[in-house]
């Protein structure tokens, strides 16, 4: 097996790319995809370290992370559809009601 650092660095790279994507994309669907990418990057870390220590725990975390991601995607896409239906636009910057 390769040194675990390789996997960690790859994971860090993917995570950073995902984070940048979240910050610069205006299309919420793409923002969502970037979030999925970040989750995958973390999953890679779990599995690599689980293999490294020869334990199941890392993989178990990944299973739960998968479940959470699936739930999040279903709800998140539901929200996007609902927003689109009410505002006829899904540009993230248009949704700024949080400003008083």
């Amino acid at each position: 097996m390769l040194p675990v650092s390789y996997y960690l660095i790859l994971s860090a790279l993917l995570f950073t790319i995902g984070a940048v994507g979240v910050l610069i994309k205006k299309n919420p669907i793409q923002t969502f995809m970037c979030i999925e990418l970040m989750l995958n990057a973390v999953n890679l870390t779990f599995i690599a370290l689980g293999r490294y220590f020869g334990q199941m725990n890392g993989q178990m975390y990944v299973i739960f992370s998968l479940a959470v991601a699936a739930a999040e995607v279903s709800v998140g896409l539901g929200i996007i559809v609902a927003i689109f239906r009410t505002r006829e636009s899904i540009v993230v910057d248009d949704a700024n009601l949080m400003k008083s």
Binding site: M1, L2, P3, V4, S5, L8, I9, A12, F15, T16, R51, Y52, F53, G54
Partner: peptide
Amino acid sequence: LVAAGVFQNLPAAPISA
């Protein structure tokens, strides 16, 4: 992150397949 990973300097696979 990368610096942390590199400086952690973990040895390759303490447990063989």
